[in-house]
């Protein structure tokens, strides 16, 4: 009796120590995640603006988003355009590159480094570099294009080319995804390939029936993270084009930023943030649900 009481006290003390250790995160989670999320929902029903009184305005922010905000549909279109090209392209190139860098060639470590380095560049520096590469008159990219007989491209100054230009720039950082695929490829057990060879499977069938299935968990991870990041594309457009020309790079995040920090319509921007949150949540859940149809999990 006394022993079990003592033991219980001991367990309680251990549990309390555990809570003490994670308490920084618990407090931080409440202060920087949970409460702000509740607050953003609340704010989206107010006309909050910096330095003035605010009041409850019901759903009028949301009405405005869908009925009167001319930029909103444009920003959705631009963001989807960007995401639906940039994410699949970066997954495809990253994966192919990883296959290439997984072969046995002398000096491979150097090649891996070269392909990886652009992805660690500070994004502000990268945007400056591409502003110069893509300069319509003095840019070296147009020099190359003329060299092969093409006509110069207006890149970031053309509403048609501005989004493809940003996508092209994002592909310079493809090494970040590549390195994750490379690790995935190296984790595939050699026996699987040996078994496939014995069963008479050629290189192509081995690729489709061993490599690709084994890589699907990594692809799912990169797909979800790529989606979340692309939906929030901001810095490149903010610095390089400011959303222009003709709103062709006015992405969702830029539109939200402008409302919150240029026009100080915090309540309205909160409504935009809530819509974003719900969209990301639904997209992530759908992707994870879809996993059982195409992602292969090892059972060990």
């Amino acid at each position: 009796m006394a022993v079990s009481q003592q033991r219980r006290r001991y367990h309680w003390r251990k549990a309390l120590t555990g809570y003490a250790f994670i308490s920084p995160w618990l407090i931080g989670f409440l202060a920087f995640n949970l409460i702000p999320i509740v607050a953003v929902f609340y704010l989206s029903f107010t006309n909050y603006s910096v330095g003035s009184e605010y009041r409850w305005v019901g759903i009028s922010n949301y009405e405005r988003v869908f009925e009167r905000d001319r930029i909103f549909p444009i920003s959705i279109y631009n963001t989807i355009y960007y995401t639906f090209l940039a994410v699949p392209l970066s997954i495809t190139f990253g994966f192919l590159l990883a296959l290439l860098l997984n072969t046995k060639v002398r000096g491979m470590a150097y090649f891996r480094t070269i392909f990886y380095v652009p992805s660690i560049m500070p994004v502000v520096a990268t945007t400056m570099i591409f502003l110069w590469l893509m300069h319509p008159q003095l840019g070296v990219l147009n020099y190359f294009i003329r060299g092969v007989g093409g006509s110069p491209v207006a890149w970031l100054t053309s509403p048609v080319w501005s989004k493809p230009s940003l996508i092209l720039m994002s592909l310079w950082g493809v090494g970040g995804g590549m390195i994750i695929y490379l690790a995935g490829l190296q984790n595939i057990p050699e026996q699987l390939y040996e078994a496939a060879t014995i069963d008479g499977a050629g290189v192509l069938r081995q690729f489709w029936h061993v490599t690709v299935p084994m890589m699907t968990p990594t692809i799912l991870f990169n797909l979800i993270m790529g989606l979340i990041n692309s939906f929030q594309v901001f810095t490149q457009a903010f610095i390089m084009t400011g959303g222009g020309p003709l709103n062709s790079t006015m992405f969702y995040m830029l539109h939200l930023y402008n409302n919150a920090f240029s026009y100080f319509r915090m309540g309205y921007a909160s409504a935009l943030a809530v819509l974003f949150f719900v969209t990301i949540l639904v997209a992530t859940i759908l992707l994870m649900r879809s996993a059982k149809f195409w992602v292969h999990y090892e059972v060990d």
């Binding site: 995640n33 702000p36 939200l256």
Partner: peptide
């Protein structure tokens, strides 16, 4: 359960908390 919460906050887009935190 709490650790799963840690993992899910890793995917939390900053855009969502940005405005309330700025006001705070």
């Amino acid at each position: 359960a709490l650790f799963i919460v840690v993992l899910s906050t890793m995917m939390m887009p900053y855009i969502v908390q940005m405005i309330p935190l700025y006001i705070l």
